[in-house]
Design a binder for these strands. Structure first.
Length: 799
DNA sequence: GCAAGGTC
């Protein structure tokens, strides 16, 4: 009988998957490393009876590192780590003996099915497993396929069985992208950390950290904290004024009203409003409203939400909370605590989990009532396809767990019960009053049914004094109207919970690594944890981040130098220029516009990457070669010319290829197609500021090598999408002369570029110069001339 | 002494 080896990402998953596939009919034993188990059962595979062996790794098998000799801080230049120091793959955790374990289990197997997590890291681990196992597996007969990848999005019967029925192949490109990330993380992290550490050591006497680390996750994490610090520092408080009114509702009761204008920033204006209202004796009811509102029950719990609450409500740092959750998990009190999913799987036994809590001393009543009256359907959350949400797995008491473990368990359990409870319903009453010309409002909430807030009392709608019953037109005596002077206040330092939210939003780290990064910036003394678990950056943290901002501002890499093929820095400050630090050369650029990289296209003459100059959306733009712009390549070119004036005979960006015909206004210019302007296509003069807008929404416009029989201008070849074509009939394509073709007449409009100086404008119909056409065409191509009565013809076409 | 990712 043949054997199928199956490998999951971690032991717990191997067990769950094997249980599903074997329908609980399997035999299990521990592997040689003591961490992984092997679950065996028989079944059918590829139409034959087989023995299945389901096991797992423990995350990554391999890790990337530099060769040992590069670990000597004093002997190796950090720059070497960055660019050339060789790396090697090592076993990630030598104690686990993972490669040997996989080989022992894989020896003599005929097929392998990879059940690694369905994300990039999982795809990468697939190939780590294959590297270890393929050499010891039985060789395939002929071309039979032996390697399979199972793709699943949740650990449910249907999903796992479907995955088994539709096996695919591992994705090598995804795995390679992880290899690339690993190498970048390693090189950037190690090179910059060593460089920074050595650079700062001894330079600053008050430096209070022996290791100044840098990393693609920890540095942005610190960045968020310093960003908030900067906001606090640059905050300028403003004084504002508020009117506050009191009305008497009963003999000894009064009601505080909020001003509908909220606040004003001008004292005299506030005083004016006060004068208009303070002498009024009565407040008249304008409107009353009562609305039933609901406060939604929470979504099922995932890791980041647990960490947020642990920090903000329980005062437990993420690292500590995660360790505590980990322990609760291994002791069987809660489900797997690392998950992004907030949606219970379809077959999740909600009632079963609830029943376990039915005799708990703290919440038995709530649970029993839910069980007898029926639970509420949980809200639809997000299924990330990793693990079910975090839930209690069995009942536990405070005495049993104690301390933080109990507090975290209690929260997880209350949260779980809340997800199957009803929403909290309350009545929001609002009364709007008029005092003189000004409107004031008061509103109050009264709970209709507490729903989930009974089990999460900290979420309760606060008790408020009930509002008087009244209707439009009723009047109340005004107690007083007064003006309060207040000041806007700066934001406070970031709370850990806010930081977690920011990291999640910007994709910094993962559910499993977010606590590690936050811990890192604390340990490195970049931030300190203040009361309320707010993160206050230290001087060191602030100086580092401000330094990075400065480095980034002094010139960012834009395009590659044609000589050394390294990136040149773009210096935006005038005169804007490109600088190649390796060749120590500076290239000036056109001023007063924006410069972008032009699709990484290169000049055929010197291999410099082209950049695109643009004067804005209403102006013109053209590509240029930084080298040619400073060193004209042909005798008929001058310094400061872009590709739209370049006479290269065959380059696709040159005047020769994109020029159409002589400018309609100036003497020496040529109208050149701006190939980057679509879908609002433009043809612009390469000397003056004439711009023709044409063929809007065409998806392609090309300059043809054919010329107009009448005026010898180059023909344009224009393609429209079917839905947007303005061409007659159902045509989507047309070739013709912009000057002479009657169909194109309608589609061309002449303008002047927005940002050019008016002094440079030529008046239409002034002169008639020598025909020049499309610049210097390749030999053999006709040299188009300007039509004799061109200006009169254009008067009809343009404008 | 360093990174980030996975997990135990």
């Amino acid at each position: 009988m043949k054997t199928v080896l199956m490998v999951a990402e971690k032991p717990s998953l191997a067990q769950s998957i094997a249980k599903i596939l074997s329908r609980g009919n399997m035999s299990s034993h521990k592997g040689l490393n003591g961490a992984c188990s092997v679950h065996e059962y028989t079944g059918t595979f590829a139409g034959q009876p087989v023995r299945f062996k389901m096991t797992s790794v423990c995350g990554h098998v391999m890790t990337l590192d530099f060769l040992g000799k590069y670990n000597k801080w004093d002997k190796v230049d950090p720059a070497e780590l960055f660019s050339q120091a060789p790396t090697e793959k090592k076993e990630a955790n030598p104690k686990l003996n993972m490669v040997k374990f996989l080989q022992v289990e894989g020896r003599g197997c005929d097929y392998i099915v990879l059940w690694l997590d369905c994300d990039k890291e999982g795809e990468n681990i697939c190939f780590e497993v294959l590297d270890a196992v393929l050499p010891v597996m039985n060789k395939a007969h002929s071309n039979e396929k032996t390697v399979f990848r199972a793709r699943f999005s949740s650990i449910t019967d249907t999903d796992i069985c479907n995955a088994m029925a539709r096996l695919g192949e591992p994705d090598h490109n995804e795995a390679l992208s992880v290899d690339a990330r690993q190498e970048l993380d390693l090189r950037i992290g190690c090179a910059f950390t060593r460089f920074q550490t050595k650079y700062f050591q001894g330079k600053y006497g008050d430096l209070d950290s022996s290791l100044i680390s840098f990393g693609p996750c920890q540095t942005p994490t610190l960045g968020f904290c310093v960003e908030r610090h900067d906001k606090i520092q640059s905050f300028k408080p403003e004084t504002y004024w508020v009117l506050q009114a009191k009305v008497n509702t009963d003999k000894d009761k009064s009601l505080l009203l909020d001003w509908d204008r909220v606040r004003v920033f001008d004292r005299e204006i506030a005083q004016m409003f006060l004068n208009m209202t303070k002498l009024e004796k009565e407040a008249q009811v304008e409107t009353t409203s009562k609305k039933e509102k609901a406060k939604q029950r929470p979504l099922a719990l995932n890791t980041v939400e647990m960490l947020r609450v642990a920090s903000s409500a329980l005062g437990m740092g993420p690292q500590h909370a995660m360790q505590t959750a980990e322990r609760l998990y291994t002791q069987g009190y809660i489900s797997y605590p690392r998950t992004e999913t907030t949606h219970y799987p379809e077959n999740f036994d909600l009632k079963g989990s609830l029943r376990q809590q039915a005799n708990h001393p703290y919440w038995a009543d709530t649970v029993k009532r839910l069980l007898s009256e029926g639970i509420n359907r949980p809200r639809k959350g997000h299924d990330a396809g990793d693990h079910p949400p975090i839930t209690p797995m069995r009942s536990a008491t405070e005495a049993e767990l104690g301390g933080d473990a109990w507090r975290l368990y209690e929260y997880i359990t209350r949260h779980f019960i809340a997800t199957v409870s009803h929403d909290c319903k309350y009545l929001q009453s609002t009364i709007s009053f008029r005092i003189g010309p000004e409107l004031f409002t008061c509103s109050g909430k009264t709970v209709i049914s507490p729903g989930f807030t009974e089990i999460m009392p900290w979420q309760s709608v606060p008790l408020e004094e009930s509002l008087p019953t009244c209707q439009r037109g009723d009047t109340f005596a005004v107690g007083e109207v007064k003006m309060l002077e207040k000041q806007t206040s700066p934001p406070d330092y970031l709370t850990e919970a806010e930081l977690i939210t920011l990291m999640e939003k910007h994709g910094i780290g993962t559910d499993a690594s977010i606590p590690v990064h936050i811990n890192n910036i604390c340990q490195r003394n970049y931030v300190t944890v203040e009361s309320g678990r707010r993160l206050k950056p230290t001087n060191l943290g602030i100086v580092l981040v401000h330094g990075y901002y400065k480095i980034a501002a002094t010139g960012k890499p834009l395009s590659r130098c044609g000589k050394c093929h390294r990136f040149m820095k773009y210096i935006q400050a005038k005169p804007s220029r490109l600088h190649c630090s390796h060749c120590d050369e500076t290239y000036t650029l056109p001023q007063n516009g924006t410069i972008k990289l032009y699709k990484e296209l290169r000049c055929p003459l010197d291999d410099f990457e082209l950049v695109l100059w643009s004067s804005g959306s209403r102006g013109k733009s053209y590509p240029l070669c930084p080298y040619c712009y400073n060193h004209p390549p042909f005798r008929d070119m001058k310094k400061g010319m872009g590709c739209n004036e370049c006479t290269h005979p065959t380059c696709q960006h040159s005047l020769s290829m994109l020029g159409i015909g002589q400018c309609v206004e100036c003497e020496s210019g040529v109208l050149v197609l701006d190939p980057t302007s679509g879908p609002k296509w433009k043809v612009a003069c390469n000397k003056c500021n004439v711009v023709a807008h044409c063929f809007e929404n065409a998806h392609r416009v090309r300059v043809s090598s054919d010329t107009c029989n009448t005026c010898e201008a180059a023909l344009l070849d224009v393609d429209f999408n079917k839905a947007k074509s303005p061409l007659p009939g159902d045509e989507t394509q047309h070739t013709g002369c912009v000057f002479c073709d009657p169909i194109f007449q309608e589609l061309v409009e002449l303008k002047h570029a927005a940002s050019c100086h008016p002094m440079h404008r030529g008046g239409p119909g002034r002169r008639q110069g020598r025909g020049r056409g499309r610049g210097r065409r390749p030999p053999g191509k006709p040299n188009p001339k300007r039509p004799k009565d061109k200006m009169s013809a254009l008067a009809a076409y343009f404008v």
